[in-house]
Design a protein around this nucleic acid. Sequence first.
DNA 1: GTTAGATTAATGCAATTGCATCTATCGGAG
DNA 2: CTCCGATAGATGCAATTGCATTAATCTAAC
Lengths: 153, 153
Amino acid sequence: MTIKRAAQADANAGVRVWKRLVQAGQQTMAAVEADLKAAGLPPLIWYDALWELEQAGEEGLRPFELERAMLLAQYNLSRLLDRLEAAGHVVRCRCPGDGRGQMIRLTDTGRLLRQTMWPVYANAIHTHITVHLNQSEADQLADALALLVRPRP
Amino acid sequence: MTIKRAAQADANAGVRVWKRLVQAGQQTMAAVEADLKAAGLPPLIWYDALWELEQAGEEGLRPFELERAMLLAQYNLSRLLDRLEAAGHVVRCRCPGDGRGQMIRLTDTGRLLRQTMWPVYANAIHTHITVHLNQSEADQLADALALLVRPRP
DNA sequence: GTTAGATTAATGCAATTGCATCTATCGGAG
DNA sequence: CTCCGATAGATGCAATTGCATTAATCTAAC
């Protein structure tokens, strides 16, 4: 009985974490997206892609690499790249050594867009996350969330 | 300078929290949805709606109440109700006392669906959340996440 | 070097979401 | 009572996402 009660308490704690994780995640995500939109900027996912590409440097990245870095479905990334390319932020280049693939490279416009987005993005994170936590709360929360993040395979 | 460094450390901590919050949120959400789908069940949002309606009891709920409870856009809820109604899990009734509105009520089928979904849902929460945390980690995480959840207006 | 199977990326089509607008009703000011 | 702004909910249309499949190329076994 003691064991059963303990398991029950544990399950309840898990459910509480789940509910708040979902709620906090949705709310903050929505708030950050709203701030970007209010500033006339494209959605977060554009930023993520531009950021990964900027990190990758001159040669760019293969789509499947971006796909993994961004935890995005293949078809989904393919279409995100369509949009980024149409907007001139990215170019698809032939991939030397693999005729199936391509290299995705950031353009100057793309680099500029990322730089333009960052202050707004940073400010949004500040408003919707940072202000609500002191240093030790933030550290604890980050550590605790890390327990839930699946290790990369 | 000390002040500036402290603010910087704080900002970094906020960004770390943000990144992990998004990642943990997305990963666990996707995993839970995948478990439901693998069991041949409808998505989480259906569960949420059915649950709120079950809590509400016989009279049901006004759409705008559900909207607030679920943090869902109006048009979005309207269409979710279309689908739930089409599937027979919900009925839209005339609203006594307000000719603009309606009462949404759960049907027996709807109640049954929620009951069917719960074990799968609970198991998913267990697999993707509970197992990764001990009791005190779970409590701390839940408390820390609560700091980010906006108080209801 | 041929061929079977795996990997990379795109795409047609359906479902969902977002946006703007619309209709109907309500509630209070005059 | 009548009018006006506010509230409840639906809906047309565009953008995005999900699913299944496809085409092209690569790799390794024969």
